[in-house]
Amino acid sequence: MPVVAVPFDAYGGAIYVPAVIKGDSVWLMLDTGLSRTGLDRDWARTVGIEPVPASSTAVVDTIRLGELTLANHRVALYPLHGLSEASGRLEVGLVGHDVLQHYAVEIDYRQRRVRLFDAARYHYRGAGTTVRFTADADLPLLRAQVKVRGRRAIPARLLLDTGASGLCLILTTSFAEQHGLGTVAPAIQAPIGTGLVGELHGTIVRLQEVRLGGLTVPSPTTGLGGEYKGFLSRTDIDGVIGNSVFEGTRLIVDYVGRRAIVEPRPVDGSPCDFDMSGLRLAARGPGLAHIMVDYVVPHSPSAEAGIAVGDELLLIDGRGVAAGDLSDARKALRADGEVRQLVLRREADTIRVALKLRRLL
């Protein structure tokens, strides 16, 4: 029997689990790639959680995750405003390795449920594909191979990061440089994600495949680090593998057994896709109510239509995006061959665009 069984919200491709902190009901992102559980420092202050003197941590009386209660738990205080703007949702906090390491964590992407089992007593019986952790890592660092068309497979240490959504993989800058991945084409110069240190820049490509033990993921969308910033500068890992790879499966992260198990194997075809408009959108302003154009991919449908950074997206096919959410807007812009009718605001002007979507990779 699980110690904890809770539903999760898959907003934006991430995993949000319900929690109660100091009597407030909140959603926390489940993040297997994060060392320490943390809260947004501004939100923490509003509920009376003060930092320990001369530190960026705090002690929280109680954090409840379903049936599990964490008492007097030390958390990091993170600046999560940038993540909130990137996701379009107020990011209150994240559940990290310091909590998850005591359990076998089962994530059922189809049923949208997370279950935590006592790791010492957990026994897996099934036909899932097993991928072992590397021997020298506490976090779930998986042995993998990445394959570029026309080249031999390259061994890679990929951090299983359920806090990463969107691209299938993001590879560190040193790994990309060492293996000459900058020559992979076609490629898009664009932001490749947003982390605790802010926006991360690089190049987006499709590799031929990534192999995790007996599991093969074809045509993964992949961010190649283009700067030494945040985890892109790390040398103890070669990259991260995110939620998109496991969508539609049941994923078990067994910390004591030092393995990840995936069942069933993903169906044929790439499980993760990429935007087909050329727009990178972010939520800004009070309540994150304004959906703004943050970046336009050169030579994309949006660039050809004259959409510019700083434009505010008001409507997609007559539906107000501010009344919905950023996740829905992004989904609407991933439909190959469809024509979307966009209405945008540029200063005092209203702009109407018929945008024909197409694959950029």
Rank of each mutant, 00 (worst) to 15 (best):
G318V: 15
Q341E: 15
V321Y: 13
I307R: 09
R334E: 09
A305S: 13
R345Y: 11
L313W: 01
M292Q: 15
G310Q: 02
K331H: 08
S327H: 11
A322K: 00
V321M: 09
Q341V: 15
L315F: 14
V293F: 06
P298E: 10
A348C: 06
E347C: 06
G306W: 13
D311F: 00
Y295T: 04
L279T: 04
A289I: 04
S277P: 04
L344K: 12
E347R: 15
G287H: 02
I307E: 08
L342Y: 12
S300Y: 04
R280W: 11
Q341W: 10
R319Y: 05
L288A: 11
G320K: 07
G310I: 03
D317C: 06
D336M: 07
I291D: 06
G310R: 08
G320S: 15
Y295V: 02
R334P: 00
L279C: 07
L279W: 00
R280F: 06
L314D: 15
I316K: 05
V309D: 07
A329V: 08
S300L: 04
D317Y: 00
E347V: 07
L344T: 12
D336T: 08
V309R: 07
M292K: 14
R334W: 03
A323E: 14
A335D: 12
L314N: 05
V339P: 02
S327P: 07
G278R: 13
V293W: 01
R284K: 15
